[in-house]
Design a protein around this nucleic acid. Structure first.
Length: 444
DNA sequence: GAGTCCCGCCATGGG
DNA sequence: CCCATGGCGGGACTC
């Protein structure tokens, strides 16, 4: 018997088959979102998951129960629907398309938009309701973003519904603390600094991904050795905690790649329960979406097994031998072929294959983040730790990017793509000119 | 078919 | 009791 979830098996739950009082506030907005889907013939989710789902009251019932008992279908259909979520990033005119697209709803994209909304001068606090309404999503999604951002120090809880905005500049310190904590605990057991567990040939590690960790390191001992936070009660199972633990895996080990499967096993505690693993994996995807949208990590695949894995980008700028590692491991970076956790800004109206050479190097950074770089919290997210050894490195890198961007303009035959690219180039140019004028230290 | 991850139900805990 | 929070897993979507 499930203790939670959607199975209806109690008086209380039956009663709540209407609309729970505590959820009524969100119901109206949910209806608006549903009708966005409803209006789009492409989507199947309303009919299948929202109407046929036995756990969700039928549409008419929901309307009757929750929308002041007065709204009919016609009224709701004609309600002023807020501008489509994510219009910030898609650059779609708010009034343009009501097309529902899964990609446009991704957590990564939401995170980008969240950052672009708040990463600016003068922002001191973030209200969850405000964020939800401005981003056009339900509060539930904001919690997901906020939990992850809190783990990396961007936000600090102030009161209910309110967070202090610490900004991207707080990330290096937060990561350092996580790293110290992980290494401190690590001293007692496995010597991670020497890389006993991780330094093995990546190929070998990936060659048997299904058993890689059990053979090379017991997930339980790995869990202890990194001082990962225990997840025993509800609070301690939070997404934030999982994020911290996930980050520690990268921060405290010499390897910068980790398979999804291994991550789930290490972070899990009990690696023997498949359904628990599946749940955990879902959460890892959630976290990875947010972290990848901030360019902390990227998604990769084993070339043969195609098993998913993550690669840490945070320290990459310090690690000049990274490219050699790539050739050594033979890992594929499918970013150019496949959407990366929904962080792709493209919407489905434009089938947009990225031009890896330019977008990956520079333009993609600013656009993908959608961050306005005019604030005081400027930070190169390619190096979230901020541990850049040469102060001019940043500027030099920017110059490299600029020259690359200027010399490798792709020739798009599609007008839409051309326009899009021009837009990205403009964004990049303006960002670059700002950075170039900045104090190099401030830039870090 | 496996991988990905959106969505929202509903349990929990604080006020 | 109300409300904020967020764990959790169904199932749609994507490759």
């Amino acid at each position: 018997m499930k203790s939670r979830g959607k199975t209806v098996h109690s008086k209380e739950q039956l009663k709540s088959k209407g609309v729970p009082a505590c959820n009524q506030k969100q119901t109206l907005h949910r209806l608006q979102l549903n009708f966005q889907k409803f209006q789009n013939p492409k989507t199947k989710s309303l009919s299948k998951s929202n109407i046929l789902n036995p756990h969700i009251p039928s549409l008419s019932t929901t309307l009757h129960l929750s929308v002041s008992h007065t709204l009919d279908l016609h009224t709701v259909r004609n309600m002023a629907i807020p501008s489509p979520s994510y219009s910030l990033a898609t650059k779609e005119p708010a009034s343009g398309s009501t097309t529902y697209c899964r990609k446009q709803k991704s957590l990564g994209l939401l995170c980008s938009n969240f950052l672009s909304l708040y990463n600016r001068d003068g922002v001191e606090t973030v209200g969850l309701d405000d964020a939800a309404s401005r981003l056009g999503v339900e509060r539930r999604r904001i919690y997901d973003i906020v939990n992850v951002l809190e783990s990396v120090g961007v936000l600090v809880r102030k009161a209910k519904n309110t967070y202090y905005w610490k900004g991207l500049g707080a990330i290096p310190k937060a990561l350092e603390e996580l790293k110290e904590e992980g290494l401190r605990n690590n001293d007692e057991s496995v010597d991670c600094k020497s890389g006993k567990v991780w330094e093995d040939d990546e190929d070998e590690r990936f060659s048997n991904s299904s058993a890689s960790f059990q053979e090379k390191a017991d997930p339980d001992s790995m869990h202890k050795s990194l001082g990962l936070f225990k997840s025993e009660n509800r609070k301690e199972k939070s997404l934030g905690l999982l994020t911290k633990n996930f980050l520690k895996l990268f921060l405290c080990t010499p390897s910068d790649t980790l398979s999804l499967e291994d991550a789930a096993k290490i972070l899990l505690g009990d690696a023997r329960n498949p359904s628990l693993t599946r749940t955990k994996v879902r959460r890892l995807y959630d976290i990875a979406n947010v972290l990848s949208s901030m360019n902390f990590i990227e998604k990769i695949h084993h070339p043969e097994t195609r098993k998913p894995a993550f690669r840490w980008l945070g320290m990459r700028s310090q690690n000049q031998s990274q490219s050699q590692t790539d050739s050594k491991t033979g890992l594929v970076h499918p970013e150019s072929k496949k959407r990366a956790f929904g962080t792709d800004l493209t919407n489905t109206n434009i089938s947009f294959k990225r031009n890896k050479m330019v977008l990956d190097v520079g333009v993609d950074q600013s656009v993908k983040l959608g961050v306005s770089h005019s604030g005081s919290d400027r930070l190169d997210l390619k190096d979230p730790t901020g541990l850049v050894d040469g102060e001019s490195k940043e500027v030099k890198k920017s110059q490299d990017w600029e020259s690359l961007a200027s010399t490798h303009r792709p020739q798009y035959h599609n007008q839409a793509l051309r326009d899009l690219f021009v837009h990205y180039m403009d964004a990049w140019s303006s960002w670059y000119s700002e950075v170039a004028e900045m104090d190099p230290i401030e830039a870090v």
